[in-house]
C-alpha cells in the first residue's frame, strides 16, 4: 500500500503499532507486571513447588520428543512433496495441513476415542500393559499431531526456490543421495528448518487444547506448564498462574535465542 501524504503514512504506522500494542504488548506487559508485583522471592517459591517443577520438566520432555520427530518427518515430507514425481501429492499436502484445520480439542478427542479405555485400540493396549490416555505417551502423540505442519510448511517453499540443479550437479560429481542431502540440500534449507523448529517448539511448549483432553491432569505427573497455568487460574491462585506464565515465556525466549546462536555458528558468511 502506498500513501501519498506523510500524514497518511504516519497514521498507518500509528494504526499498525497501536494495534500491535493493544493486542500483544499490553497483555504480555500486564502478565509480567503482575508476576513480579509480589516480589522475586514469591515468584521463585511459586515456580519451585513440586507441581511446578514437574510441569516444567514435562513440558520440556514433550517438546524434546515431538520437535525432533517432526523435524525429521517435516524434511522428508517436504522432499517428497517438492522433489518426487509421485501422483496424489496433493493428498499428502492436505493431510499435513490437517492439524491446522482441526481444532486442537478435536484432535485430543480423536486420540481419546482411539486410545481411550472404550476406544478402538484402547482395550488391546490396556491388555498389553500400555497406557496412552491420561499418561505421557498420549500427550506426546497430541503434541506431535498439533506441531506436524510447521517444518514442512517452512521447508517446502525453500526447496522449491533453490531448485534441483545443485543436487543434479552433485549427482554427476559422484555424490550418493545421502551425500547430496547432507552436503548440498540440508545446508541450503537450513534457514527454513530452523524457523520450522522454532515454530514447532513454541507450539509444543504452549499447546493447551489437545494435551488437556488426553492428560487427565494428574498433578505432578501429567500436568504441563500451560495446564498448570489454567489449573492455578481456576483455583484463584492468580499470582501462581502469572509466575507459571512467565516461566513459559522464558522457555520460549531461550528457544529463540538458542536457534539464533546456532544459525550464527552454522553460517559460513
Amino acid at each position: 500500500m502506498t500513501t501519498a501524504s506523510p500524514v497518511g503514512r504516519l497514521s498507518v504506522r500509528v494504526l499498525a503499532l497501536g494495534y500491535l500494542a493493544l493486542l500483544l504488548l499490553v497483555p504480555i506487559g500486564v502478565v509480567l507486571y503482575r508476576t513480579f508485583e509480589p516480589g522475586l522471592g514469591e515468584v521463585w517459591d511459586s515456580i519451585t513447588t513440586p507441581a511446578a517443577v514437574s510441569a516444567f520438566w514435562l513440558t520440556i520432555e514433550l517438546a524434546a520428543i515431538a520437535v525432533p520427530l517432526n523435524t525429521i518427518f517435516g524434511i522428508v515430507a517436504a522432499l517428497v512433496l517438492v522433489r518426487s514425481r509421485v501422483r496424489g501429492k496433493w493428498l499428502l499436502q492436505a493431510f499435513i495441513d490437517l492439524p491446522f484445520a482441526i481444532s486442537p480439542v478435536v484432535i485430543g478427542l480423536a486420540l481419546f476415542l482411539l486410545y481411550g479405555r472404550q476406544g478402538w485400540l484402547g482395550p488391546t493396549l490396556t491388555d498389553a500393559g500400555i497406557q496412552i490416555i491420561f499418561s505421557v505417551p498420549g500427550m506426546v502423540l497430541a503434541t506431535i499431531f498439533v506441531c506436524l505442519p510447521f517444518v514442512v510448511r517452512e521447508v517446502a517453499p525453500v526447496l522449491r526456490e533453490i531448485g534441483d540443479e545443485q543436487e543434479q550437479a552433485a549427482a554427476t560429481l559422484g555424490a550418493s543421495r545421502w551425500q547430496t542431502f547432507r552436503r548440498i540440500t540440508l545446508p541450503a534449507i537450513r534457514w527454513g528448518v530452523a524457523y520450522g523448529v522454532v515454530l514447532s517448539t513454541a507450539r509444543a511448549i504452549g499447546e493447551f487444547g489437545a494435551v488437556s483432553v488426553v492428560s487427565g491432569k494428574i498433578s505432578g505427573e501429567t500436568v504441563t506448564l500451560p495446564l498448570l497455568v489454567e489449573n492455578r487460574y481456576s483455583n484463584f491462585d492468580l499470582s501462581g498462574a502469572y509466575a507459571a506464565s512467565a516461566l513459559l515465556a522464558v522457555i520460549a525466549l531461550a528457544t529463540l535465542l538458542a536457534m539464533t546462536l546456532l544459525q550464527r555458528k552454522g553460517d559460513p558468511r
Partner: peptide, 10 residues
Amino acid sequence: PQRRDIGFVF
C-alpha cells in the same frame, strides 16, 4: 549419473 564417469556443466 553418479557412476557414469561424466562431468556436467549447467
